[in-house]
Simulated scan of single mutants.
Amino acid sequence: MAENMKFDLVSPERSLVSGEASAVQIPGTDGDLTVMYGHAPVITTLRPGILRVEGPKGEEDYLVSGGFAEINGDGLTVLAERAVRRDEMHQELFNDWVAEARDAKAKADEFKNEPGPVDDAAKLLSDMVALGTHIGLDPNQTNLGG
């Protein structure tokens, strides 16, 4: 049986999880990865996606809009820009996340001769739309409510 590791998921608004996990799948910007006890130390950035925690209570899914993950041999800390439990996400909240990504893209478009910021903002928006589609929410809906 695999050893559990310490796992923390925090956002600026709150601490969502602090406890034990046997495995955590994270949506890294360079690709998804699964972290287990003894994983090599890594710091990576996150893209919008589903973070899946396997622990004593079974599997739990969280949605993150981006952030950072710090992996050490016996634990994982995720500092998310925004994060909610999967069952707490609803159309109105998702609309806010997409609007924020669209605003970032609009601001980045001012840097037409600097493709880095424009490409990053376009990728953020694309990932956000894909996340919503994956969980059954419509990125084009407005004011559907919760």
Rank of each mutant, 00 (worst) to 15 (best):
G67K: 12
D61K: 06
A23D: 14
E59F: 09
A130E: 13
P117F: 02
A69I: 05
T45V: 05
G31W: 10
R102V: 08
R14D: 04
R85W: 02
G28C: 13
G58L: 09
L125A: 00
T77Q: 11
P41L: 05
I135K: 03
G67E: 13
E114P: 01
I43N: 08
I135R: 03
D103K: 03
I26L: 14
G75A: 03
W97E: 14
V10W: 03
I135G: 02
L137F: 09
V42D: 13
N95T: 15
R47L: 11
R14I: 07
H39V: 08
N143A: 15
L33F: 15
D120R: 03
S11H: 04
A21L: 11
T44C: 09
T77A: 14
R85Y: 06
D61C: 03
K112R: 14
V35S: 12
L33T: 15
Q91S: 12
A106P: 00
E88Q: 02
M5D: 09
G28N: 13
R82P: 01
M5G: 07
G38S: 08
E54S: 12
E13W: 04
G146W: 10
G116L: 12
Q141F: 14
Q141L: 14
I43C: 04
D74M: 07
D138V: 06
P48D: 07
S18A: 07
P139C: 04
N4A: 13
Y37E: 10
S126E: 15
L76A: 14
T29V: 14
K105G: 02
Q91D: 10
T133F: 05
V64E: 13
L137K: 04
D119S: 07
I43W: 04
V129C: 12
H134R: 15
M5E: 10
E54N: 12
D61Y: 03
A69E: 04
